[in-house]
Simulated assay, not measured.
Amino acid sequence: HARQGQLWIAARKGQAPEIEILSVDDGPGIRDLSQAMRDGFSTAGSPGTGLGAVQRLATDFDVHSEVGKGTVILARLRTAAARTGAFKWGVVALPAPGETVCGDSWGVAFDGHRAAMLVADGLGHGEHAAEASMAAVDLFAKQPFAGLKEALEEAHIILRMSRGAAVTRAQLDAETNSLLAAGAGNVAMRIVSGVFNRSVLAQNGTVGVQMRRVEETRMDWPAHALVVCHSDGLQSRWPPQAITALIGRDPTLAAAVLVRDYGRGRDDVTVLVMRRDD
């Protein structure tokens, strides 16, 4: 059914372990998704139980298909729901071609109506890049809601023993409808709602190598908007229309569509997407 099809599989440990599987393709798309989900329907002479069986077996299931553009299918198996407060989130992180370790790292944390997120892009590729980006994540995990300016300045000191990383951190508040962000380097952040599309400007520099005085940016966060944070493995000029149809869906679908359609294909790529939980 697909062209250029791939399976992206992630296993996550912790208090709520899970396995997440994404099927991503550039195929013809599915013209009638509701019909395709019914057992017994097939366009290839098969029993026609594939999608329905996956949906029944999965804890979480979602699918997005565009005729002429392709299909993304998400299936997640988990033992218990993770505590995410007022938020839903999803991420796709893939290593550069030929690498077995992704040089990007990411983190999320939740506290009631507040959420914190980070994406770090270690310079270069491979294990040394991953060591630099994970050092930023380890610091984030200790104090995810620390002051952004102080947190980045501390990361700048800690990452001096590494090759350095581009880092963006943000804190989201679902009650005040606001976002506070700060970073150094080419990790981009954008708020997308279809009518409100705004980029958070990143400062030049590399955490652990050379960094200017940290400046925080506060922005409005409309009720239905997605917050997208990504490394430079994704093209910076992707159109917001690419994911506006996915607002309100599992955020992992939006991350996967962006990587499929706008990934550079020669670098590590990480796309982290967050929204309010309806």
Rank of each mutant, 00 (worst) to 15 (best):
A184Y: 12
L152P: 11
A155L: 15
F196I: 04
N177G: 12
V187E: 10
L180P: 10
T168L: 08
G185Y: 11
S178H: 09
A181W: 11
A146S: 11
R160L: 01
A188H: 15
T168M: 08
S193Y: 06
A165M: 01
R169F: 14
A146W: 15
G183W: 07
M161D: 15
V195A: 10
G185A: 01
A182G: 01
L180Q: 14
A151Q: 14
G147L: 09
V192C: 10
A155Q: 15
A151H: 11
L152A: 07
E175G: 07
R163G: 13
I191W: 03
A170Q: 02
L148F: 13
L152Q: 12
V192W: 01
A182P: 13
A151C: 12
L152E: 11
K149F: 11
F196W: 07
V192Q: 02
F196G: 00
G194L: 02
A170T: 10
A184K: 00
L180W: 05
M161N: 10
L159T: 11
I191S: 06
L180Y: 07
T176Y: 00
L179K: 05
I158N: 09
M161K: 13
R160V: 02
D173C: 11
L159D: 09
G194K: 02
H156A: 09
L148H: 08
A181G: 03
A181N: 06
L159C: 06
